[in-house]
Computed example of a mutant assay.
Amino acid sequence: MFDDPADEFGEYAHEEILQGLVRSLLTSADLDQLCDEADLPQLTHDDGTPVTVTSARVYRDAGVMTLDRGVWLELSDGSVFGLTVSIARRPRDEVTLRRG
């Protein structure tokens, strides 16, 4: 029997999927490579080595006390960022989920 993706994501499917994509993107390649691909300058330490993402966890796994969905990023330079995924409008039509 196949698992129903709707069971995994529930009514917050858009937010859950987007937070998963952001987390995956930021852990699948080096930050300097992502900056190059986006034609952005690279973040570097004083010694010239690239700043890296040392941790990218969804808010729930990072222990962030919020009901929002998002990704908690920790960088090698000591900085920490929370990227919140918030919905401004729900879809007009029903959306179904399917595995790729």
Rank of each mutant, 00 (worst) to 15 (best):
D47I: 10
V58G: 07
C35F: 05
H14D: 13
V64G: 03
L40M: 10
Y59V: 09
Y59A: 05
D4A: 15
L21W: 10
P41T: 05
V58K: 13
P41R: 06
D61T: 07
S28G: 10
V64H: 00
T52N: 07
E8F: 10
L25R: 14
C35P: 00
V53S: 00
A56M: 06
A6T: 13
D39Y: 07
D61L: 06
L18N: 05
L43W: 02
S55P: 04
G20W: 00
T66M: 01
L31N: 00
V51S: 04
V53R: 01
Y12W: 09
R23C: 08
V22F: 08
G10T: 02
T49H: 04
E11D: 14
L21G: 13
Q19K: 14
D32P: 02
E15A: 14
A62V: 04
D30G: 12
C35K: 07
E37V: 11
D7K: 01
T52R: 15
D46L: 11
E37R: 15
Y59W: 08
G63W: 03
G10C: 06
S55I: 03
E11S: 12
L21T: 08
V58A: 10
L67P: 10
E37D: 14
G10Y: 02
E8G: 11
Y12H: 15
H14Y: 12
S28M: 01
L25H: 08
G20Q: 06
G20F: 00
V64Y: 01
F9R: 08
S55C: 08
L31I: 01
D4E: 15
A62G: 07
D30Y: 03
L25V: 13
L43M: 10
Q33G: 05
R23I: 01
E15Q: 15
V53E: 01
R60S: 14
A56P: 02
M65P: 07
H45L: 14
R57F: 08
D30M: 11
R57C: 05
M65E: 10
L18S: 06
L18Q: 09
R23S: 12
T27G: 04
P5I: 03
L26K: 00
D4S: 11
M65C: 04
M65F: 07
A13E: 06
L40K: 06
I17D: 03
L31D: 06
T49M: 07
P5G: 12
